[in-house]
Structures are given as structure tokens and as C-alpha cells.
Nucleic acid binder design. Structure first.
Length: 262
DNA sequence: ATGGTTGCGAGGCAA
């Protein structure tokens, strides 16, 4: 059985309802994971998505900030919603699909501007969130699982437009990359996007602050698709839909896709 | 070193 999954930081699911519908209609992933819904769950426009075949959803939300949701064409049951680092934020939801695959959808804290936890509390919270993720997966080793989301870290040199220029910029600092590597090791996760596309620069986010994002191309790969080793070999066809970043009134993130032949 | 833009929600905060 084949299924396709996508992850997209939507930056307000209510403002961009039409864009979500367009992606659902044009690309029709079996599972669509959103982050930064910025909406209470009861105000997500479920009916419009349901009409496009996404009849099943698990979600966590809060007013104005954060929020994660998994829309699925096949049945999904919630298995957990973690409160990593005890922030009380809606940044994680996990569901088990009818095909037996567990999907973790994460929105890791961005971490503020200064990469020093002594002067920037948000950076400490980001590191603590990642440490908590690591401990969680070490204590409960995932199987037949996929982890997606806006992890707010671009780990590789070719995941950013300029490695040296970004070494002290939050999202690409060595300490963040090390924390992310420990999360990966704890769950034995495989980076599916880079398994499929091992070479070359790859970005999923371009700042709103760049007037001509496409030409300047100062991007970062902040959005990820991982899988456990029992199903990672079944992954193929990963792609980042850069064109979506150029849609009318876009999110600053592009959706990331992967297909699994299970 | 700074400023650049966007969303939420009505002034600044978060990204």
C-alpha cells in the first residue's frame, strides 16, 4: 500500500484556508500535517477540508499562536499530545493511521534572536524542548513511525544559503544542530528528505523580510520528514514544493512531501 | 550592526 504525506507550516490555517484547499486538491497527499495553525481547534475550517476527502483529523490548538493538525483521508486516532519543555504550547500531536503507521507532528520553538540561553529565555526553551524530545524517544523507541514538522533547525551546510554566515544565527548554530542530532539518534530516525535527495542545496523556508525571496534565495531547510528504519527504506519521491512559496499571500514555508510504499 | 515583512488583534509580541 502506497501513501503520500506532506508537512507544511501554514502560518494561520484560517487566513490560508484557500491555499490549504488548493494543495489538497492539486497534490492530494493522503496525510497533510500543518503547523502554526494559530487557531483554536474548534475554529479550524474542518468542513472545507472534509469536503476534499480529509475526513479524519487530530489536532491541538490555541488562540493566536502555535497549533498543529494532521488531516487524513484514512482513519487516524490520536495517540498522544506532548507538552515538551512544559511550555503549555500546542506544538505536538501524534496519531496512528489505519495502516498502522504512527505520525508525529512537531512545531519546535523558533528560539528567539540571540543564540544564548543566559540572555534569551526562548533559546533555552528551544534546547529544552529538543532535549525532552530526545529523552522521550530514548525511553519509548518508536517503530513504524514518521516524524514531520517545522523543527526550526537547518542541520546541514547545504540546508542553508550560507553556512558560515549562519553559524551564529538561530536555526543553524552548532548547539542546535547537536541537539537535533541527539533527537535523531534517540529515535533512530532517518532523514527521509535527504535519503531521497542526498546532494545539493535544499530549502523549505524563505523569510518574508526578503523583498525578492525567489531571486535572493536566502533559504533554509527548517521543515523535515523523518522515518524509523523499519519503514524508511519504503520512502521515495521526496520533494519540496517551492512554487507554493510564490502563491498569492503565501506562508513563508513551502510544503515538504514524501511517498511510502508499504 | 541593522532592518527588512507578516499574523494576530488592536499595542506589541512572535516569527
Amino acid at each position: 500500500m502506497t501513501f503520500t504525506l506532506a508537512t507544511w507550516n501554514i502560518n494561520s490555517v484560517r487566513l490560508r484556508e484557500a491555499l490549504v484547499c488548493r494543495l489538497m486538491r492539486d497534490e492530494a497527499p493522503d496525510v497533510l500535517c500543518l503547523q502554526e495553525c494559530k487557531s483554536p481547534v474548534e475554529k479550524i475550517p474542518m468542513e472545507q477540508f472534509r469536503a476534499l476527502g480529509y475526513e479524519h483529523v487530530v489536532a491541538r490548538g490555541q488562540k493566536g499562536y502555535n497549533g498543529v493538525a494532521i488531516f487524513s483521508k484514512m482513519p487516524i486516532e490520536e495517540v498522544r499530545a506532548g507538552d515538551y519543555a512544559g511550555l503549555g504550547h500546542a506544538r505536538h500531536i501524534a496519531g496512528r493511521l489505519a495502516n498502522g503507521v504512527t505520525v508525529h507532528n512537531f512545531y519546535v520553538p523558533a528560539g528567539g534572536d540571540v543564540p544564548d540561553r543566559a540572555v534569551n529565555e526562548k533559546f533555552g526553551q528551544k534546547l529544552d524542548f529538543l532535549t525532552h524530545m530526545r529523552d522521550d524517544f530514548a525511553a519509548n523507541r518508536p517503530a513504524r513511525a514518521i516524524l514531520v514538522g517545522d523543527l526550526n533547525i537547518a542541520p546541514r551546510e547545504d540546508d542553508v544559503w550560507n553556512h558560515k554566515a549562519l553559524l551564529k544565527i538561530v536555526s543553524h548554530t552548532p548547539i542546535e544542530v547537536e541537539h537535533l542530532a541527539q533527537v535523531m539518534a534517540a529515535g533512530d530516525w532517518v532523514d527521509v528528505t535527504r535519503q531521497d535527495i542526498p546532494e545539493g542545496r535544499l530549502y523549505s523556508w524563505w523569510s518574508y523580510r526578503s523583498p525578492d525571496w525567489d531571486t535572493a534565495d536566502k533559504g533554509r531547510r527548517l521543515d523535515h520528514v523523518w522515518a524509523t528504519p523499519d519503514i524508511a527504506p519504503a520512502a521515495r519521491g521526496s520533494r519540496i514544493l517551492r512554487a507554493v512559496r510564490g502563491w498569492e499571500q503565501p506562508s513563508d514555508h513551502a510544503p515538504v512531501f514524501a511517498t511510502f510504499d508499504l
